[in-house]
Amino acid sequence: MTAISLTVNGKVVSGNVEDRTLLVHFLRDHLNLTGTHVGCDTSQCGACVVHVDGRAVKSCTTLVGQVDGASVTTIEGLSQGDQLHPMQAAFRDNHGLQCGYCTPGMIMSAVDIVQRHGGKLDEATVRHELEGNICRCTGYHNIVKSVLDAAGRMSTAQAAE
């Protein structure tokens, strides 16, 4: 067992966990943050993506011990109260989701993509960057639209700040 302490969605959390505990299981089973999903065993599908110190990370291939002391943001921590994050709003407005299972990981990856590329995103770049996230429902058409829409909204919001 290992004692760990980290910040999740702005709150400090700590606990004693088995050494083999993955971040995704810590979030889901210990903190009841069930928005982060597991869709595969091979780090391929991206349903488990969260942000660790601001960068998109697959929480199914991260031991919670590796993020001791880090700041983790999950899908539950993305919105500001009732105010959806521009990426969440764009997914809703563009029908970028169907069953919703891949959606949290998709949104967390997409936020990271926009943050890294700023306003320079185009369709080909978004499609290439989404390589690590699998969706079986949408055919990606509306996910790509959502990300491009959100990129515009996020740069507008940034300019306004």
Binding site: T34, G35, H37, I75, G100, T103
Partner: peptide, 11 residues
Amino acid sequence: DRRFTTGKGRY
């Protein structure tokens, strides 16, 4: 979509 985009879906 509000629940699905905020991680509040219940599977």
